[in-house]
Design a protein around this nucleic acid. Structure first.
Lengths: 337, 337
DNA sequence: GCAACACTGTACAACGTTGTAGCCCCTCGG
DNA sequence: CCGAGGGGCTACAACGTTGTACAGTGTTGC
């Protein structure tokens, strides 16, 4: 079963190094020899043992991708894009789920399981500024999705503040003034929730609209279900609002559902905008306005950046912050009434 | 940077094998020695090189999962479940996307990249009965999601025919007689589309309803977009129908969208049922009736079965067919008018 | 007091591959 | 005719780990 270079070499009547050379396209081999070897390879059905090759070369040809949960549409689509980009570079991707648990995220960074990969693309949810030390890891690391300052690693991220501000301004431009928020994390500053809320507040401020805590709907989880729940709580408070900025699309879909159940029309009574531009946002009824944070670009850039760090491990290029372009995608859920 | 057993052994003043023994919990080590070694390990920050361990032991601790596309909700949720199940067994998962391209699926099976894993969980879309020979691979393989007969590998699958039949009967029980189909693959017999269509026809037959090709809407792709397109085509034909069986949930969501655009009410004018029970089915408006094919059980069983084959490679247990229980999930989209 | 036996540790080989050094032979310039 | 140079190939070591064989040291049983 396990056909090795030795077997091929014996059959072809050459040394194993010659077989290795044929496989690796070493130029100085006589055509006759090459043919002999290739014949033996196909006859035995030899395929190289990648584990041995990795041990010898120090490279595995695999990268790890750690996301909170693949069942979340945003991360599923991100993972799909990363895997596709990696495959284009001849890499395979090992996917880990952290469940957005800070403890598991820290553990992951130290995990020896990463020894099987050449580097890590990591989309943390629970880590904060205080975990920067944990990011000092002895392998190439590219962070996604949250902005951390002065971290030791490259960072490919969306412009959370600016994009959230643009989303909010899109609602303001549509004539809305009482803009509720769904999905805030109280006290958070540098996470996606904190940054997007900041963009929201900047937009309000720029247009002279007072920030009103009573229409901020907190929700730690960013599931459809929690979006619906947060919206029901908001409705139960009896406070008025004519628009909703959901901090991601999934929350927005849940919130829309709760609004419709409560008899509020979207967008007539309440305009809704999300964040992420996941595929399904364009197929809901009404279709969901959102911000496209540049996911495809993020995936490609993350893989390219990681590859560069893998290729030049000792390079003293300082950590880079790479920002994706974003765009507001206007759909039915924010159409003028 | 690269701390090895040698470094630890030198610092602790023992042989490398002793260090190895400490790490692998070999029982006969004096407490004093163990302590010395553990001290050296933490001082140097040693972590084992999994590549070397794999080469030596022949086991990698990784499995591969191949799905058509992670951006498809069903496969994202399946992958999430497989990764979680694998993690519970101490395995990591390498995810590949085949794009449902038969050529790439065949290629994947022969790919040396799988040499980095102990086995493969494979959810093929494009492969047919004629590809059975390609499934004779020299590593443990568990197939998901399609029923193939007399294949050489274990197969964990949903009861496509029976579940589709139950879905159709659910519509019939709600008083519907003109039941359209969205997502058929013409001429297909053993793929998910073919099997589900067969279940549909069996249900019709059992209730004395004639099969009418004019309300069968083909669609190779199973995206929301293609579901909407197929539904629009069906509507354009001008044929009457009072229900739709979409061959998966994503198609159903797209079809619902197209129905609503066309002014047909769901479920009043047209009842809709899907297949898969993806998370979002319960959050759409109206919420989508569907069939839960037992995804969680499939993921756990696939991992457990693969692990068993990995543990006993030469076992002559014949290929097994493991069938998940299914259930019809009745929601608003099929409520009695 | 001596064999038998567990306990504790070591040395060496091996997993399958690739890098390095070097050998042989041929060609070519001088 | 000889040395230099390079094409074509081989032998060997090494990547970091674990299995096997074995060598000491006590300890036990008789």
């Amino acid at each position: 079963m396990a056909v090795t270079l030795h077997d091929v070499a014996r059959l072809a009547g050459v040394s194993i190094k010659t077989v290795s050379n044929v496989i690796n396209d070493y130029p100085h081999i006589r055509p006759a020899t090459r043919e002999k070897v290739e014949l033996a390879i196909t006859e035995l059905g030899y395929t190289p043992n990648l584990t041995a090759r990795s041990l010898r070369s120090g490279r595995t040809g695999a990268i790890a991708l750690a996301v909170p949960d693949l069942a979340l549409a945003y991360f599923a689509e991100l993972a799909a894009a990363v895997i596709a980009a990696a495959e284009a570079s001849g890499l395979v991707v090992l996917v880990e789920q952290t469940g957005a648990d800070p403890e598991r995220e820290r553990e992951l960074l130290r995990s020896p399981r990463l020894k099987m990969t050449d580097g890590l693309i990591f989309s943390p949810l629970g880590l904060g500024q205080e975990d920067i030390a944990a990011l000092e890891v002895p392998y190439p690391l590219v962070l996604l999705g949250e902005r951390m300052f002065d971290g030791p690693s490259d960072h490919v991220t969306m412009q959370n503040v600016e994009a959230a501000r643009a989303a909010t301004e899109h609602l303001i431009a549509a004539g809305r003034r009482r803009i509720a928020v769904i999905g805030s994390h109280e006290g958070e500053v540098i996470g996606s929730a904190g940054l997007r809320l900041r963009g929201y507040r900047e937009a309000l401020e720029a247009h002279g609209i007072a920030y009103d805590e009573s229409i901020i709907g907190p929700s730690m989880a960013w599931h459809r279900e929690s979006g619906a729940r947060a919206m029901r709580e908001l409705l139960a408070r009896g406070v008025g609002f004519d628009a909703v900025f959901a901090l991601n699309d999934t929350l927005a879909l849940g919130a829309m559902r709760a609004l419709l159940e409560a008899g509020r029309r979207v967008p007539d009574d309440v305009a809704v905008i999300g964040f992420d531009n996941i595929d399904e946002a364009q197929y809901t009824v009404p279709s969901l306005s959102t911000v496209d944070p540049g996911r495809a670009w993020i995936a490609e850039t993350a893989v390219a950046t990681l590859l560069e760090r893998i290729a030049h491990p000792q390079s003293d290029v300082p950590p880079r912050l790479l920002l994706a372009d974003f765009s507001v995608v206007a759909r039915e859920s924010t159409h003028a009434a």
